[in-house]
Amino acid sequence: MHINSNVAISDSGFIFNPLTGDSFTTNPIGLQIIEMLKNGLSQQKIITEITTKYLVESSTVEKDLRDYLSMLNSYQLGEYVN
């Protein structure tokens, strides 16, 4: 997923989308995922990063990541790239 370049993200987890005018909050792990997406990491790589760092099954992360990305997409914060 590609995070839209004009989206403003602060360290506190506050996100502002200047395109739509909406603002959001995300939790620390969400913030890390957005950072990784910005750095161009693939979904597979993100799952590996998270499972290395956190105590969690990769199948759980896969489900949660799918849901999170769908929300980013629906909030027009990011776009899927094939």
Partner: peptide, 10 residues
């Protein structure tokens, strides 16, 4: 400890 990623519109 893991927490699922979460985003909420304000």
């Amino acid at each position: 400890p893991y927490e699922r990623p979460f985003i909420q519109k304000l």
